[in-house]
Design a protein around this nucleic acid. Sequence first.
DNA 1: TCTTCGATTGTCT
DNA 2: GACAATCGAAGAA
Length: 193
Amino acid sequence: MILPREFYLRSVQVVAHDMLGKKLVHLVSEQRVGGIIVEAEAYDGELDLACHARVGKTERNKVMYSQGGHAYVYFTYGMHWMLNCVTGDVGYPSAVLIRAIVPTDGMNFISAQRPNIQEKQWCNGPAKLSKALAITGELNGCDLCNPDGVLFVEDGETISDDNVRITHRVGVQSTPEPWLSKPWRFVADLSRN
DNA sequence: TCTTCGATTGTCT
DNA sequence: GACAATCGAAGAA
């Protein structure tokens, strides 16, 4: 049920694409909280000028250099946590940014995390889903393949390619070409399944 | 509906 | 000292 290590030991673009339809789960006090992944972006190595690893290995991004299947959780804009899944082998910094999920488990918990907000807006952004699932820096570096872990990704439904939209990455303002236009963002349209 | 802007702090130069 | 893989409120139209 939990995705095996091999799933992550492939090129980051393939992993980002295949991540759609899978189920992200965070165990909070033994309660399952999570949902179906519907949007992901690939960040590929030190040459990718949109990737944190463009400046080489630092204290902040060192988890990206670990083996695929680990969680890279970082803090930005003074208030937001972002969840990534590290891909590839040890030493190659690449990761998939989880940008959106459709909540399926722990709806009560999620609604409590996102008070006064419409259900559709609960998890449709990288910082939003981290807030909704109570994902913070404490989870940075944890192993997503550990069956006894609290954060993991389970196999889910397969999304047909007809229902996958591929675009350039968003939120990376000042990234120069050709990196700005790389088609490394994958969005699933579940309504057409 | 669309656009602008403030929040708020860790990290890197 | 600048700025960030964002969000959501507020104001304009």
